[in-house]
Every structure is written in structure tokens, then in C-alpha cells.
Amino acid sequence: MQARLLLYPVADIDAALPFFTEALGLPVKFRDADRYCALDAGALTLALVAGEERLVDQPALAFKVDEGDDIAAAITRLVAAGATVAQPAAQGPHETRAVLRTPEGFALVLSAKP
């Protein structure tokens, strides 16, 4: 698995966006209405999430499950290593995703294409 982005929960994307684009100078890569906005932060995408895309309350790394592996197997592997499931795998608008907690209690989001 590779970390593909950092989910950054916000109350309102329109209100939050100027800080990231104007003050930090991050260009917008993709926007999906008022729920998701991907910003180019170099090696990592910073994703502002609101509404139904706000899966976490604090910033969290999101990992894409490798092609050929399924999300259930990845969840099983992480739980065996000490993670706990905070939100079971469910289909979102573009992918299946789950929220886990690391052994230290931090949120970690997994996603996989259906």
C-alpha cells in the first residue's frame, strides 16, 4: 500500500480553500462540488473533505489498497497488527473505503476501487 493523500476535514470547502490556495499556494488538482477538493502538495495530495466525504474529524493518511488485493484482506492484515476498525468498508461515491485506528489511536483511511 502507498499513502496517496492526506484527508483534511473542513466544515466548508469554499471557506477553507483560500487559505490553502492563496496563503499556501497549493494548486487545485480536482474538485467534486462542496464535498471534496484535492490540492497538489507535492509528493502527497492534500484533500479537503466536507459533508459526506468527511470520514474523519482530524487529518488522516489515506492508503490505496494495491491492485489485486482486496480491502477486506488489507483490513484483516492491519487488525492482526493491532489496528481497530472505526468504520467498516462501505461503498463511497468513487471507491470502497474504511476507517481504522492505528494502535496509537490515529485514524487511517483505506480505499479500493470496486
Rank of each mutant, 00 (worst) to 15 (best):
20 F>T: 07
33 A>H: 12
37 C>L: 12
20 F>Q: 03
90 A>I: 09
91 Q>L: 08
11 A>V: 15
38 A>T: 00
75 I>Q: 13
25 G>P: 03
54 R>C: 04
22 E>S: 07
51 G>S: 08
42 G>V: 08
13 I>W: 06
93 P>N: 14
52 E>K: 08
101 R>T: 00
42 G>N: 02
78 L>M: 10
94 H>E: 15
72 A>C: 02
42 G>E: 02
51 G>C: 08
70 D>M: 06
17 L>S: 05
102 T>C: 03
97 R>E: 03
66 D>V: 14
83 A>T: 00
76 T>I: 04
49 V>C: 04
40 D>C: 11
75 I>G: 04
65 V>S: 00
11 A>F: 11
21 T>R: 04
64 K>S: 09
22 E>P: 14
1 M>K: 10
16 A>H: 04
15 A>M: 05
1 M>V: 15
80 A>P: 01
39 L>F: 02
68 G>V: 10
112 A>E: 05
99 V>K: 06
82 G>T: 04
13 I>F: 05
69 D>R: 13
92 G>T: 11
87 Q>H: 12
47 A>P: 00
61 L>N: 01
83 A>R: 02
91 Q>I: 07
76 T>S: 15
48 L>V: 02
72 A>S: 11
91 Q>M: 13
82 G>Q: 05
39 L>T: 01
4 R>C: 11
102 T>D: 07
12 D>L: 11
67 E>K: 11
111 S>Y: 12
111 S>M: 09
55 L>A: 14
59 P>K: 02
36 Y>R: 06
108 L>Y: 08
30 F>P: 03
53 E>Q: 09
72 A>M: 06
93 P>Y: 13
74 A>L: 02
22 E>C: 06
45 T>V: 15
60 A>E: 00
56 V>G: 01
13 I>T: 09
55 L>C: 01
81 A>K: 04
5 L>S: 13
18 P>L: 07
114 P>Q: 10
22 E>T: 08
39 L>A: 05
85 V>W: 04
102 T>Y: 06
29 K>E: 15
90 A>M: 09
33 A>R: 14
51 G>M: 10
24 L>K: 08
17 L>T: 00
65 V>Y: 00
101 R>N: 11
52 E>G: 10
14 D>V: 12
99 V>Q: 04
3 A>D: 01
60 A>W: 01
37 C>W: 04
37 C>H: 06
20 F>C: 07
99 V>A: 05
96 T>I: 10
27 P>H: 09
64 K>V: 15
96 T>R: 14
47 A>Y: 02
111 S>D: 07
66 D>H: 07
89 A>Y: 08
56 V>C: 05
40 D>H: 10
11 A>D: 12
28 V>K: 06
110 L>P: 00
88 P>K: 09
69 D>M: 13
102 T>F: 01
60 A>N: 06
38 A>G: 11
29 K>P: 04
107 A>C: 09
12 D>V: 15
48 L>F: 05
50 A>F: 05
4 R>V: 15
75 I>L: 05
21 T>W: 00
78 L>A: 08
31 R>H: 09
39 L>R: 03
8 Y>F: 14
15 A>N: 04
